[in-house]
Design a protein around this nucleic acid. Structure first.
Length: 220
DNA sequence: AAGCGGATCGTCT
DNA sequence: GACGATCCGCTTG
């Protein structure tokens, strides 16, 4: 085992610290691109490089779940920075966020897409549906619902987990990779404040969700 | 290759 | 009782 050199590196990297998340969601968003989301359950290790996120600014952001004020559902976003906010959407999917800003101030980053690095077999098994029908690996984690499913994220298991605590088994690490070019666009799937450029992605990365089509010359 | 609509249920009014 | 920070499959070009 451990034939994968990437695994040796990732296994010993520490979680990003609390201060990393204790900032404006827009700053955290740009810095999260290129970082690695890690999920540890027992001996199993999942890892994927984050290539697309969205910032949700808090009570003054009409598109954010926190816009309605604190409720049992969104309470994590009003707590301290660096905790998992997981919600269930459209009767089908979970989505994974990280809380930002100090306790009492809402804010979060939605993790929308990533490039699988470790545990690809496990991710494929968790996704199960239609792995080979369209995009191969791209099908695993390109989109917030897919990413959550590939990582086995559910609200009951993961909502409120501490991203800075290694024992939570869910955290983000920095392997020194830096995103070459960051593009901002409007956020996806919202109706309010839909014009704000709060979606961040790595330019040209094939694992970005949605209209990240490859240019003409797209091979077979 | 791109656009449309159904599925499905927790959360808040 | 309505709607949503989505995904998938089917249809059309």
């Amino acid at each position: 085992m451990c034939a994968n050199p990437v695994e040796k590196i990732i296994r010993f990297l520490p979680p990003l610290p609390r201060e990393f998340y204790n900032r404006d969601p827009r700053e955290v968003s740009t810095d999260l691109l290129g970082k690695i989301l890690v999920r540890r359950t027992g001996r199993k290790l999942l890892a994927a490089r984050i290539v697309e996120v969205e910032a949700y600014l808090g009570e003054n952001d009409p598109a954010a779940h926190s816009a309605v004020g604190r409720t049992p559902r969104n309470a994590v976003m009003f707590g301290p920075p660096g905790f998992a906010y997981v919600y269930f959407i459209y009767g089908n999917h979970y989505c994974l966020n990280v809380s930002c800003l100090p306790e009492g101030t809402a804010g979060a980053i939605l993790l929308r897409a990533a490039e699988p690095l470790l545990g690809i077999e496990i991710m494929a098994k968790a996704r199960e549906v239609a792995i080979d029908t369209t995009g191969g690996l791209r099908n695993l984690t390109s989109g917030p619902g897919r990413l959550a499913e590939a990582f086995g994220i559910t609200r009951s298991r993961d909502n409120g987990k501490d991203f800075t605590d290694q024992k939570s088994g869910l955290f983000i690490v920095d392997d020194g990779y830096s995103a070459l070019e960051i593009v901002t666009t409007a956020r996806i799937g919202i109706t309010k404040a839909a014009e704000l450029p709060l979606r961040y992605l790595i330019a040209g990365n094939p694992f970005v969700s949605g209209a990240a089509r490859l240019k003409s010359g797209n091979p077979g």
